[in-house]
């Protein structure tokens, strides 16, 4: 069952004070928008990446960097499911420290981002998938421009209340696998209420990739961020 209070209206959203942009400044002109996708093990990060690949196929020049344990099977999955050429995917070895690689020591990820752009040409959108970690793992702002934190209802409806930087501060919180809620006894309205309490004005979305295989609203949110990114990039910097 869907909660009554959905955040659909938040995409595209308006800022409380139109004169003040609360976003962290976006990346310099000309490079891809980098969106981090983090969250606990099994919350559906890879499935979301696949859904977004499907959503943006033929629309955006897309690349994926993954910090997860990445097998040729995973590559095949993305290739089959998301029409993403394996040449557009880079895996980063994290030395058993997935949070370090996306937060404290981001060089290998930046390297992978650069290598991808060198190998396949300029990209518009780069998805950076974290390794499965816990609720405290977030991306460095030096690595990504925006981050999505993915939790799932099967992890229990207490997860938003537990908070942690992923839940409280991610630019978008995705509560995934809503189709499983009745089976695991999760109350989505509780999750929604707790997420609002934790996140203030930051958007939260419920998602079932089984029902929405292109993660339409998440894709729409990314499109919005991307148009913002391009608008910022188009503004000339300094005196002409």
């Amino acid at each position: 069952m869907r909660p009554e209070t959905d955040h659909d209206e938040s995409v595209p959203h308006t800022h409380p004070d139109p004169g003040v942009d609360p976003h962290t400044p976006l990346a310099p002109a000309g490079r891809a928008l980098r969106v981090g996708i983090g969250g606990p093990v099994g919350s559906g990060k890879t499935a979301l990446v696949a859904a977004l690949c499907r959503a943006f196929a033929g629309e955006l020049r897309l690349g994926v960097v993954t910090n997860d344990i990445y097998t040729t099977e995973d590559a095949d999955f993305l290739k089959r499911a998301g029409v993403l050429d394996p040449a557009r995917i880079r895996a980063v070895e994290t030395g058993c420290c997935p949070h370090t690689a996306i937060r404290d020591d981001i060089g290998a990820n930046l390297d992978a981002v650069d290598e991808l752009a060198e190998a396949v040409g300029p990209l518009e959108l780069m998805l950076v998938e974290s390794g499965g970690d816990n609720l405290t793992a977030t991306f460095s702002r030096g690595l990504v421009d925006r981050q999505i934190f993915v939790v799932d209802v099967a992890g229990g409806d207490k997860v938003p209340r537990k908070g942690g930087p992923g839940v409280t501060a991610a630019d978008l919180l995705v509560i995934n696998k809503t189709d499983l809620a009745p089976m695991v006894g999760a109350d989505l309205s509780v999750m929604d209420r707790d997420a609002r309490a934790r996140r203030g004005d930051l958007p939260t979305m419920f998602l079932s990739i089984r029902e929405d295989p292109t993660a339409g609203r998440v894709a729409a949110w990314i499109r919005h961020e991307l148009s913002h990114h391009r608008a910022v990039a188009a503004v000339p910097v300094g005196p002409a």
């Binding site: 994290t94 030395g95 370090t100 690689a101 404290d104 020591d105 060089g107 290998a108």
Partner: peptide
């Protein structure tokens, strides 16, 4: 080892 030059990922 916390200097951000990637040491954590090398064994």
């Amino acid at each position: 080892g916390r200097f951000p030059a990637g040491a954590h990922a090398h064994s």
